[in-house]
Amino acid sequence: MIHLRKIRKKYQMGSRQVTVLRNIDLSVSGGDFLAIMGPSGSGKSTLLHILGCLDRPTSGTYCLNGKNVFEASDKQLSRFRAAHIGFVFQNFHLIPVLNVFENIELPFLYAHTDMQQPEMRQKVAEVIRQVGLADRVNHRPSELSGGEMQRVAIARAMVMKPEIILADEPTGNLDSKTGREILALFHTFHDAGGTIIMITHDREVASHAGKCIQMKDGNIFV
């Protein structure tokens, strides 16, 4: 499903060049639950952004479902993200002026589906029930606890029924009990056949994943 070949990523930081990723080769099959571990600055997040089509590598190829992603235009990548990829971030990244329902509804605004409004609302309501926030629908993010915010973020990532969820330290800002609840939601998605790629610092969290890779200085160690 996902094939990365010789992915390199360099940043220009003022006058010096920083190489964040060197020669990354990685394959992920559909239905995998992959954890990426490694110290800060090892390039995990950059790799995740590239996997999520938010960023482009300096060189190398990225095949997703047999298509070379980086031949696509910015618009096509955006559409692709909307329909096939869900993001979950360490800092939740919810839009503060929107309530729970509206935050979760957001992907529908950008995915070009033939779905009618009642159907969309039904899907949003369904995913809200799945993450157990039915009584929080009209709350703004500022009125929620960390765990609740992350559940909103997961609901937003799952609402379009994407093939892949990319999570960047989803439990990093949560206590271990809440973290386990979040991981349980990931398992539900995984059990339904979804692919998850998750960055984490925590060995225990990583142990939930089927596979685990280690990164250091822009390289992968298995």
Partner: peptide, 12 residues
């Protein structure tokens, strides 16, 4: 950034 990650195009 959030909107772009969720799938908004530049035009959106």
């Amino acid at each position: 950034g959030i909107r772009r990650a969720v799938g908004a195009t530049k035009k959106d």
